[in-house]
């Protein structure tokens, strides 16, 4: 099974708009999925500056697809979807 890679944007905008709290996903994912999922903070993904849309921050990248206005639940849902499809 392919590993699911999750990158939480830790740029200033995303952090201020809610990514600070998404750091909890690092621990949640470890307990819930073990080694199948890797969650890490990453430098600015540069999404808000491209379309100057900070209203949709924070952004999270799950295996290459971008989640806007990310919440812990939204990201977990996307991880589950990837795990299911990856089987």
């Amino acid at each position: 099974m392919a590993k699911v890679n999750v990158k939480i944007c830790m740029g200033t905008t995303c952090f201020v708009m809610g990514a600070s709290q998404l750091q909890e996903l690092i621990d949640i994912a470890k307990t819930r999925y073990g080694d199948d999922v890797e969650v890490a903070g990453c430098p600015c993904l540069d999404i808000c500056s491209k379309n100057s849309e900070y209203s949709k921050a924070p952004y999270v990248d799950v295996n290459g697809s971008i989640i806007s206005e990310a919440t812990i639940d939204k990201v977990l849902y996307e991880i589950d979807r990837n795990l299911k499809n990856g089987k």
Partner: peptide, 16 residues
């Protein structure tokens, strides 16, 4: 802190 965060967003300052 919220206002300082907003100031960084508006000025596009990457703290890291």
């Amino acid at each position: 802190y919220e206002e300082l965060g907003a100031l960084f967003i508006a000025k596009k300052i990457e703290i890291t």
